[in-house]
Design a protein around this nucleic acid. Structure first.
Lengths: 163, 163
DNA sequence: TATTGTTATACTCTATAACTATA
DNA sequence: TATAGTTATAGAGTATAACAATA
């Protein structure tokens, strides 16, 4: 993965950030949310890559573990993933031997999702990696800020305006 | 924009959210950040669409206004946009008559970016629309939570790990 | 040699529509 | 008629590499 030119350009761009003013953006939560999310995804994905997962796949595994037998559309809805896209993501997890799709007994259109024994083992490792990532976020943001941010953002409900 | 089938599916998915547990995700800032960002982008873009802008184009306009004469790579670096992608975004703004690209006198490789008079008018309207959006975010999140979130997240510095 | 802007390419994600099998 | 899962496609975004002009 040679990135001699690209890394240099990015480093230079970062250096110039200090001289750039953000104007009204400083007053907009969306700007900071986007910036933080960008960093969080890169850091979390870098950790999860060691067990061939990423943030999305991990979130799906964790949600299935918390809701055994749930249908694809329920997990997709909870995570804000399109149901069309969920198909390919679950294909990946199934081919990796981490989940099973069984016909639901209540509704034969639906798949009842579940973790395999291997899925449970990987999920346990993933949760350890994500916990380490959370500590990095907390250290970076400051422990007090981290707690405040988590408490404030956890109260946001998105359901009403979906779709 | 007929979305009879899609909207129905999404509404159903949202309804089922209530029954879905999130497990460890409840303790992860990244989950809530992603959820909030998703809502914020949709809401802000819906507002800005009335003047043919979106959040990214608005952020670029505002940054240029705050840093007249800045080079493309400096603006890109401040906003976390790839410099390759910045080219097309600035093409859009230029074709819309909102910005100008002039050769920098200090560094003839670089473009000195600036707003046109029309760009300044549109940016003023955009800032009003975004201010209205921010109020919706604050109302949705609760004013105290909004202030706490803004204060906490504004202290996150991303520079070190770019690239 | 390195950087700015540019073009090109491959891959991922989003949004949407349509199909099947079920309900 | 409507929904769950699936497939397909178009448009956006990301990541990367390479090139010309310039430093």
């Amino acid at each position: 993965m040679s990135k001699s030119a690209g890394a240099g350009a990015q480093r230079e761009a970062a250096r110039q950030d200090a001289a750039i003013r953000l104007g009204e953006l400083e007053n907009h939560l969306g700007y900071f949310v986007r910036r933080l999310q960008h960093w969080i995804f890169r850091d979390a994905n870098a950790g999860l890559a060691t067990i061939d997962l990423d943030v999305i796949l991990y979130s799906i595994l964790e949600t299935i573990a918390a809701n055994p037998g749930a249908a694809q559309i329920a997990v997709a809805g909870a995570l804000g993933i399109e149901r069309a896209r969920m198909v390919a993501l679950l294909d990946d997890l199934q081919q990796a031997g981490l989940i099973v799709r069984e016909r639901s007994e209540q509704d034969r259109r639906a798949h009842a999702l579940g973790l395999t024994p291997r899925g449970r083992v990987i999920l346990k490792k993933a949760n350890a990696l994500v916990a380490a990532h959370e500590k990095r976020v907390a250290r970076r943001l400051g422990v007090d800020n981290y707690r405040r941010a988590l408490a404030a953002l956890a109260q946001f409900e998105t359901d009403e305006t979906r779709g």
